[in-house]
Write a protein that binds this DNA or RNA. Sequence first.
RNA 1: GCGCUCGUAGCUCAGCUGGAUAGAGCAACGGCCUUCUAAGCCGUAGGUCAUAGGUUCGAGUCCUAUCGGGCGCGCCA
Length: 562
Amino acid sequence: MRNRIAELVESSLNSAITSQELSTSQLPTITIGTPANTEHGDFSCNIAMQMAKGERKAPRQVAEILIRHLGDGNGLFSKTEIAGPGFINFFVAATAWQASLLEIESQGNTFGRTATGEGKKMQVEFVSANPTGPLHIGHGRGAAIGDTLCRILDASGWDVTREFYYNDAGAQINNLALSVQSRCLGIEPDDQRWPADGYQGEYIKDVARAYLARESVEASDQHTVANGDPKNLDAIREFAVAWLRREQDFDLAAFDVRFDVYTLESGLYTEGRVDSVVKQLIANGHTYELDGALWLKTTDFGDDKDRVMRKADGGYTYFVPDVAYHQAKWERGFTRVVNEQGADHHSTITRVRAGLQALDIGIPKGWPEYVLHQMVTVMRGGEEVKISKRAGSYVTLRDLIDEVGRDATRFFFIMRKPDAQLVFDIDLAKQQTNENPVYYVQYAHARICSIFENAAEKGFKAPVKPAADELKLLTTPEELQLIKIMTSLPDTIDDCAIHFEPHRLTYYLTELASCFHSFYNKNRVISEDTALTAARLYLLKRTAQTLKNALSILGISAPERM
RNA sequence: GCGCUCGUAGCUCAGCUGGAUAGAGCAACGGCCUUCUAAGCCGUAGGUCAUAGGUUCGAGUCCUAUCGGGCGCGCCA
């Protein structure tokens, strides 16, 4: 609806220019807003105020010209008016709202989807947790935001690739292998022989036990059989990585999150990508040697200090393979790449982008794009739970899903905008689950399903493709408001996709559910009036479909009973 | 000290890339179930949008400064 009105305004603008009533040399971008006050109509446009100065006319005068060329929008509007300092307000005719229900019906479970992305490729990298332990709550937020973002971008017409990148060969992985080896040899964390920064979690014992038992492991991207020899550190490393990757697979599966591509840091070395990037950066003259290390002049690209690429010990710092990885993404044809990660890693953005600019291979300055989520503070028993992976004292994602439920956990993680901090009170989420907004939305869906059960018992069912005469009975403010909210789902999806902000969809759902609950309490659906009953059943059929479609994009179920 | 980010009702947060009288949930108070699910609805109360300037027809939103919380500032990832 919003787009339709924007198109009408644009054509009336063109028409006014053709007739030389307006003379603007460049068309302003047309934005259609939704007034907070219903007295100001269903939609409004501020274009007359924006153009007034250039036109050397009063805003209301510009608005008057536009309205004249606009007419009634081929019956779309029941009224258009000029209001306030120069707003154009649009009142959509009830018949137009009613007719839009037919479009929702014909689109079925694809209603809400748009073609905005034009089928172009976009890659989203998220979670990207190193396989040194189970996923914790911070990863959970990243998984929920990243996965929902993928679903939203897909619904917005993008061809999305979901990617998981991890370090399978660095110092931390070596540390992991040493920890497992120590457990294999029966060495405890308080033993002198325990590795300095060893991982102390209970799960390390499980890995050691499985390794000694020569178990085999099938992870989504790893397949291995334990060698069983506690002296063979390489074999332990390989097994531990695969074992923990599989654990993460379990966690992610429980969260209904999946990936298309896994990229291993070690592969960037074995394929020669890291070497090739270093050579290219040297050849382009963006490096220098100092104190036995090789530096990249990232200050040439907006960083506040230069960064070491190759350490004095000969190893590369982590961001070098990261640059190589992103070069590979670019070569794979992703002109748009989004990285979802914790805000505590935000300093990598400048470095990676600087490295890519220094390669001078035509990558745009702002590529890749980033979505950063702020810290999650975990509260349990009224106290903050400190997250320490090495000490093993932290709340895992799986614990959370087991305690709170998948739907509520997902909803909770995405209902705030990513760059706001999140307090996750486990006791609250556990003990007062019916206060969680996700139930409010799901309840609306279950309620509608229940109405249809009752209707079926009494021999009623929603009509298929009803005529305008049958729908014209839908006239109350609640009914029209319900339709209005439903039709804005595609706009909401686009807004979420453009801003990378999944939380907007949770607010949309709450609003839609709220509108339905109000309608339900004020009106009876099944009544003596068979014509009205049919019209309302049709309205609720579309409402249930809209709720289900939107919930599905959030990866949340739409229960038929609660 | 520098960079990023946040600061909106008692609490947790929205506020549609500058629009009209700043909203929701929870908590508080008062109502609504012999009829389709009360996990619901209706109403009341609650605000100097951290502070001070600036930009313009118009600022919670943009700019500057200050104050306060978080994160980052490693030849760790």
